[in-house]
């Protein structure tokens, strides 16, 4: 989303530095908290959390049932709930149904499960078109959804956050839970990709 109206980075950086120093001086923010927050999202919280949930659901059918019936408590069993994932709904992709998550009003996203959202999820292009033309949007990600498959779009406008349980790829029957988790990509858990085997001709998106 480049635009000639954007402020140059150096100006913004200076402005942010000024605000930061004032807020510390006034005792409104604590620099140690700032470091903790940045470190958590840069190093600890990310799509690997969601991938663990998906892999567990693939190998443990009772867990999968609990996950689909009440995402919040099933994810709490794994200690993976957290900020912006307090109330979770998990929706399952099947040969008949393809789910896609969006937030048209801002960029609501399950932070504790998938980390902070990628630029494309926050983009005006995605927020505007995912609801009116989900199949066109998916095509932009290289995903052609057959006409007979129903596309369900979930607009996370309120306090519930959504996670897609992607289909387990064929040929993974002998893989362990952690090997399965390593196949699960962020985009597959938002619904803009399918989970692929590493040998698959279609490269996995990040």
């Amino acid at each position: 989303m480049s635009s000639h109206n954007q402020q140059p980075d150096a100006d913004i950086a200076l402005r942010v530095k000024a605000i930061e120093s004032l807020l510390i001086e006034k005792g409104i923010i604590d620099p140690a908290a700032i470091d903790t927050i940045i470190d958590a999202y840069e190093h600890r919280i990310g799509p690997h959390n969601g991938a663990r949930i998906v892999a567990k659901a693939w190998v443990d059918s009772e867990f999968k049932q609990r996950l689909l019936a009440d995402g919040t408590s099933a994810i709490a069993e794994m200690n993976l709930t957290g900020f912006s994932s307090e109330h979770m709904v998990v929706v399952e992709n099947t040969p008949e149904v393809h789910n896609l998550i969006v937030c048209t009003l801002c960029s609501c996203y399950p932070w504790a499960i998938l980390g902070l959202p990628p630029t494309w999820y926050k983009s005006f292009a995605y927020r505007s078109r995912a609801v009116i033309d989900p199949r066109g949007v998916l095509r932009e990600f290289g995903l052609e959804i057959p006409e007979e498959v129903a596309v369900r779009v979930w607009d996370s406008n309120a306090d519930l956050r959504y996670l897609v349980l992607p289909e387990r790829p064929v040929g993974t029957e002998t893989m362990t839970e952690s090997e399965l988790a390593s196949l699960v990509t962020r985009n597959a858990m938002i619904g803009t990709a399918k989970v692929q085997l590493p040998s698959s001709p279609h490269e996995q998106a990040a």
């Binding site: 807020l23 999202y41 990628p118 983009s123 005006f124 078109r129």
Partner: peptide, 27 residues
């Protein structure tokens, strides 16, 4: 809405693109 451009898909995107982004987020 229409006409808001193609979806900007960025490979291997960092969590924050610059320090100021990280600071704005954390503050």
């Amino acid at each position: 809405m229409h006409n808001l451009g193609p979806i900007p898909i960025e490979e291997n995107e960092p969590v924050f693109h610059s320090e100021w982004e990280a600071k704005v987020f954390a503050m």
